[in-house]
């Protein structure tokens, strides 16, 4: 009888676990209503977004005030489209290109970090410099300019950069006097690709910045700063001559990181406009109604510990002038050529 009771208790425990498993998976504490989704989004951001202090300092964003202001616009009988608009507008207050709301019919975004400024970039002009016989290797399109300067255009870091391709490109351009890397309007992609490329421009391990991650729900709960180094590419070609990196406001995320890294490299000069920023590694989460939200979670800093979320300044500020554009001349490329040619005279 005693044994039967023990067996019965074991069975009962199994059933209890089965039932409790089903009931314990409630997920987040917010209901799938307009108000529930609003509160869920606000709390997800409140606990995980990493730039509240920076945004308060730069833009005057008070996240609690944002909550109260947008909460007044929420009602449980509003349409999904209206709810999406309110939530997207709330996120838009942060003016962060890495903050997006993914609904079923739209993506909430704020690209004012780019669209509010002159682009300083013309694809038509770029194509004039590249010519008809430019070469393409993965994400790089390149050619040799008339004054024997290599010109590489990298529009995106979305795909990976292979060492074999980099070797081939650098070998092809090895007799050039210098290199112009044009990353204007590069919206980012893989940071690893940016690092692989940057490793070709240093002969020693260089501190290029820091990163950290949130370690708690508070706005200031961060881990210690973790240094980021770029080590020279081993057993691969490394570029030893001057490099002009052309940047504009369209350089975002991994392209911004690439600019941050290259700014620390020897013989490298950043020419153009301030970069677009996007210095936070984004992660994703979800709302009760199934919409997905992406936001910056791990901030990165330059080698001096300064935020790069708002972009970085070039060494040499140059704008694309209308007169040059009318003449078919890219002011920024010409400035880069002038600097490289100057370096040949006065290294």
């Amino acid at each position: 009888m005693k044994k039967t009771i023990i067996t019965f208790l074991l069975c009962a425990a199994a059933l209890l676990v089965t039932v409790s498993c089903g009931k314990s998976e409630n997920g987040m504490m917010f209901a799938n209503t307009a108000m529930g989704n609003f509160e869920a989004l606000w709390h997800i951001m409140d606990e995980h977004y990493c730039f509240f202090d920076f945004k308060k300092q730069e833009l005057g964003v008070d996240w609690n005030e944002v909550h109260d202001r947008y909460r007044a616009a929420i009602s449980d009988n509003m349409t999904q489209m209206a709810l999406f608009e309110v939530l997207a507008n709330m996120l838009s207050e942060l003016q962060d290109g890495h903050v997006n709301l993914y609904g079923t019919y739209d993506v909430g975004r704020n690209w004012h970090w780019k669209t509010d400024y002159p682009s300083n970039y013309s694809k038509e002009l770029r194509d004039i410099y590249l010519g008809d016989d430019s070469k393409m290797a993965g994400l790089m399109e390149y050619t040799v300019l008339e004054d024997n300067i290599g010109y590489i255009v990298i529009e995106s870091f979305q795909s990976s950069v292979s060492d074999s391709r980099l070797d081939a490109v650098l070998h092809y351009l090895s007799l050039c006097n210098g290199l112009i890397i044009d990353i204007r309007d590069n919206g980012g992609g893989s940071v690893s690709s940016a690092e692989t490329l940057a490793a070709r421009f240093t002969n020693e391990k260089i501190l290029v910045g820091y990163t950290c991650y949130k370690d708690g729900p508070g706005h200031n709960d961060f881990s210690e700063l973790i240094p980021t180094y770029i080590s020279p590419a081993k057993n691969n070609l490394r570029w030893q001559k001057p490099v002009a990196l052309i940047v504009n406001r369209g350089c975002f995320s991994a392209a911004n990181d690439f600019a941050v890294m290259m700014k620390e490299m020897p013989k490298v000069r950043l020419i153009g406009d301030m970069t677009g920023g996007g210095g936070g590694m984004p992660i994703s989460s979800e709302l009760p109604n199934g919409w997905s939200v992406r936001f910056s979670s791990a901030p990165s800093f330059d080698a001096r510990g300064e935020h790069v979320e708002g972009g970085i300044d070039p060494h040499q500020q140059v704008s694309l002038t209308d007169s040059d554009k009318a003449r078919g001349v890219d002011t920024l490329i010409e400035a880069a050529r002038e600097w490289i040619n100057g370096m040949l005279v006065n290294p």
């Binding site: 199994a14 590694m281 791990a298």
Partner: peptide, 28 residues
């Protein structure tokens, strides 16, 4: 009829810290 139960009492578990990305863990 057989009933088997395994119940852990003490040990070590693996999980990244809060929002720590695996990419950061791996890279650094």
């Amino acid at each position: 009829f057989q009933a088997t139960l395994y119940l852990p009492l003490a040990g070590i578990g693996y999980a990244p810290d809060y929002d720590q990305l695996y990419w950061i863990m791996y890279k650094n």
